[in-house]
Design a protein around this nucleic acid. Sequence first.
DNA 1: TCAGATAAAATCGCGC
DNA 2: GCGCGATTTTATCTGA
Lengths: 84, 84, 84, 84
Amino acid sequence: MTKPVANGVDAKALTAFLERIENLEEEKRALADDVKSVYGEAKATGFDPKIIRKVVALRRQDATKRREEQEMLDLYTQSLGLFD
Amino acid sequence: MTKPVANGVDAKALTAFLERIENLEEEKRALADDVKSVYGEAKATGFDPKIIRKVVALRRQDATKRREEQEMLDLYTQSLGLFD
Amino acid sequence: MTKPVANGVDAKALTAFLERIENLEEEKRALADDVKSVYGEAKATGFDPKIIRKVVALRRQDATKRREEQEMLDLYTQSLGLFD
Amino acid sequence: MTKPVANGVDAKALTAFLERIENLEEEKRALADDVKSVYGEAKATGFDPKIIRKVVALRRQDATKRREEQEMLDLYTQSLGLFD
DNA sequence: TCAGATAAAATCGCGC
DNA sequence: GCGCGATTTTATCTGA
């Protein structure tokens, strides 16, 4: 039976947090590998990975830009709300 | 029915690859958010996130080291197998 | 007269590099302060700094997007060049 | 002649602020490039950039610490001055 | 194997 | 003081 609380730190709780974090990061790593695989497949199919990366980047930028423009509008709305 | 192959690029296949990649990256983002949440919980429980990050980094280094040593062993095993 | 090369490291050259780097970073910090001042001025003039930040971000995104699209075109041109 | 004030926002003043900010940030970017160049030089001279970064970080910490201690002293001086 | 580019992590600083 | 966003630094990866 290990001491539940030693040196003022709850080792059990700490370990639980560590494991949750590490599991999540392991899953992330697995997904990153999957992404790499897809690029590999695309390349094998004749696509230039470099170009695909650019397309992905552009589409992400579009999404980001759209979101920012929406936030912009919200800010204006909010500001105008001051006169209500 | 859109042209399956236009300008020498198979738009359908390309789109499929793009979507697979983007879905995977979305999942990665979701996991990253989860990790952040766990750090938030840990902080609320009284742990210092900064220290937890250090611990995670240390354990990851250990794990990496162990993995590399294992790969080393595998290489040796493999090499020795050549003489079987 | 300090030794120009001790322990295999050229302390004089190292120091020179350090100072160049530190001077440049000091200049960066000064510019960052200037930026902050401008936001302060803008706020004092009645502008919402938050909105200005968004506008700056959007304009930067535009520039980035344009650049990326150009790189995209270059990539295609390059790819097509393979058939030359 | 464009309207100086439309929709309640002074477009001219806004533009002026935007340009000041963007110019400053452009200068920052230029300095960042310079820093990168110096690291490149250092590397070409045989120094490990990674180590140089560590040294720079350490010296910055020292400087910060020294500054804080000075502020501490100033506070004391100031406090003592109250009794003058 | 290394340089350059890309993406991830950590740190910093601001505004709320 | 805390979360959040931006910046900076570290690590990974790809291509030469």
